[in-house]
């Protein structure tokens, strides 16, 4: 099974924690001052973490496909 996690750019992340607070799935944690997404939770790719991140450090890219 494909486990979905937002892509994280540890270089850009400054550990502000905004994404942690907004994720309704509690899918994100801060470890060692940088963010990690945990795989076990049901991330539904809502993109809210991406929307709040001031540093463009967490991203939910879409693969666009024809039906």
């Amino acid at each position: 099974m494909y486990i979905m996690k937002p892509e994280i750019d540890k270089e850009k992340c400054d550990g502000c924690g905004l994404c942690v607070g907004v994720c309704l799935e509690n899918g994100i944690m801060i470890v060692d001052k940088t963010v990690v997404a945990i795989a076990e939770v049901e991330c539904d790719w809502c993109g809210i973490c991406e929307a709040v991140c001031p540093n463009d450090a967490i991203r939910c890219p879409f693969q666009i496909i024809f039906a």
Binding site: A51, R59, F62, Q63, I64, I65
Partner: peptide, 19 residues
């Protein structure tokens, strides 16, 4: 969307909403 779409199984650009 049309420019970046691929057939299922093919690999194409992945775009975030920010992109």
């Amino acid at each position: 969307l049309l420019e970046n779409a691929v057939r299922d199984g093919e690999s194409g650009a992945k775009l975030t909403q920010r992109d």
